[in-house]
């Protein structure tokens, strides 16, 4: 694969190859950083770090084996570095799963908020247990949808399955999540009737809301409403 040869010449210090690397592969990464809310100077600085990491011994570019497109690999390397650079002490100290936090922040209905305050630790535990009971794939699919705001189609691409299949995974994951939470709340907190219902409704709407949230960038195109596959040449 000639991308591999190209990477090798960059590592070997070929000036022309490095110039092309800068021009065609590295400078577009600035947009990646900008979309992650790094400002212009931070983006430049980060790009410089990525460049050093790639080319200065032990050159990361040397580990490129050519099993994926170079541009995608570089984006992965750069995104990883950017995420690590941004990880602040607050985030680092966090141990729980982000999905759990999404659900445990104050809900919309006052009565639910009251319930939450009363039984905060129980609720968190109930939800965590229910979430843990899902399969790793179901959890990932939920996270990719809720936290990373990927469309069903995008998730389907990752797993090489049909969009409908992903849709089924996610709705069954939500259902079993809901069922478990409901059962646990009845058992452990003794909730029932209207209180229980409003809690579940709140949980549902928050998952819905969460599915629209983006974690990395708050500015970006939302998934296209048109369900037909777009922009695929044939």
């Amino acid at each position: 694969m000639d991308e591999l040869a190209f990477a090798r010449s960059c590592v070997a210090g070929d000036a022309e190859a490095i110039a092309r690397l800068d021009r065609e592969f590295l400078s577009p990464l600035k947009n990646v950083f900008r979309s992650m809310h790094f400002d212009a100077s931070a983006s430049d600085e980060l790009l410089q770090q990525v460049r050093e990491r790639l080319l200065v011994a032990p050159a990361r570019l040397e580990t490129f084996r050519g099993t994926a497109p170079l541009s995608a690999w570089l984006r992965a390397v750069a995104t990883r570095m950017a995420l690590n650079a941004r990880r602040d002490p607050f985030e680092a100290g966090r141990t729980g799963d982000a999905v759990l936090e999404l659900v445990s922040v104050a809900g919309p209905a006052a009565e639910v908020r009251m319930l939450r305050l009363e039984h905060a630790s129980t609720f968190a535990e109930v939800f965590r247990e229910a979430f843990r009971s899902l399969s790793a794939r179901e959890r990932n699919a939920l996270r990719l949808q809720c936290l990373d705001a990927l469309t069903l189609e995008q998730i389907a691409t990752i797993y090489s399955v049909n969009k409908a299949t992903v849709s089924r995974w996610i709705s069954s994951a939500r259902e079993s999540l809901e069922k478990r939470v409901r059962n646990s709340l009845v058992e452990r907190v003794g909730l029932s009737g209207a209180e229980l219902d409003s809690f579940i409704v709140a949980l549902r709407s928050q998952l819905e809301l969460a599915s629209l949230l983006r974690t990395q960038s708050s500015v970006g195109a939302l998934p296209h409403p048109d369900p037909s596959p777009r922009g695929r040449g044939e």
């Binding site: 992650m36 995104t79 995420l83 990719l144 990373d148 995008q154 970006g220 195109a221 998934p223």
Partner: peptide, 17 residues
């Protein structure tokens, strides 16, 4: 989380760009 976000960023590349 980092790996998942790297993955999401790559998948989202087209949509974001």
């Amino acid at each position: 989380e980092v790996c998942r976000r790297v993955l999401a960023s790559l998948v989202n590349e087209g949509a974001h760009d």
